[in-house]
Every structure is written in structure tokens, then in C-alpha cells.
Nucleic acid binder design. Structure first.
Length: 111
DNA sequence: TTGCTGACCGACG
DNA sequence: CCGTCGGCCAGCA
């Protein structure tokens, strides 16, 4: 994976998430080769806040499709509104029909 | 420099 | 079924 660090890889994958699609921390971590480093993906998403580039961190949720990180998007329903704005149905902080919107980098990118 | 913590996930009892 | 624990890498005191 080039000379970039794990963090950099997370950012690139996050930017590659298509409009109206979502993925999970574990999927990204597994795609990067470190399945157990799913926590680092979430931490990387936290770092996107101070990044100059626009990272669609709202498209990254946990394995259950639950918006665990919505509290970090300004402490409001920003994350949910962004997802709904992309045509994704979110109810009770959980993505409805999650499997339909799920975007697996290892599968879609097919490297 | 050492140690804790963090937007998770999977295994075990 | 539900509670607990370990693991992963990077940032910060």
C-alpha cells in the first residue's frame, strides 16, 4: 500500500466512498489489511475534522449500520441529515436497509 | 519516554 | 442472550 501510513489509507478510502453509499470501520480496516484496527479507522475519522479536505466521514458507520459517530459531527443530527440528504433512510441513529447501501472497498474496488 | 484512550469488532462464558 | 475482554495504531499529557 505505497509509502503512506494506515491513517492516510483510511482517508483515501473514505474519499472513495460513492454518493449515497456507506461503509463500516471494520470493512475499511479489513481492506487495509488490519482487521483489528477498526478503532483506528474511527480515530482517523475524528482527525478528518481538522483536515483541510472534505472527508465524507458521515458515510462511515459501525458494522450494525448504527451512527455511533454522529455525536462527533457537531453534537447534533448533522450526520443523519447528511445521510438522508443522500437518499439514505436513517431511523433511531440506525441506517435502514443498511445492506443495500453498504459499500465494501475490497469488493467494489476489487484490487 | 511511558501509558492511557478512542466514532470498533469478534470471541468467550 | 448479555456482559466482559483483548487487539489493533496513533495522538496527547
Amino acid at each position: 500500500m505505497r509509502d503512506i501510513s494506515f491513517f492516510q489509507s483510511v482517508y483515501e478510502v473514505a474519499r472513495l466512498i460513492p454518493y449515497g453509499r456507506v461503509t463500516s470501520y471494520g470493512a475499511i480496516a479489513s481492506f487495509l489489511g488490519s482487521k483489528g484496527s477498526s478503532r483506528m479507522v474511527g480515530w482517523a475519522m475524528n482527525a478528518t475534522h481538522h483536515l483541510p479536505e472534505n472527508i465524507p466521514a458521515h458515510r462511515v458507520v459501525n458494522r450494525n449500520g448504527l451512527l455511533t459517530g454522529k455525536h462527533h459531527f457537531g453534537g447534533s443530527q448533522t450526520m443523519q441529515e447528511l445521510l438522508e440528504s443522500e437518499g439514505i433512510t436513517v431511523e433511531d441513529n440506525q441506517i435502514q436497509n443498511f445492506a443495500n447501501y453498504f459499500w465494501d472497498p475490497a469488493k467494489e474496488l476489487q484490487l
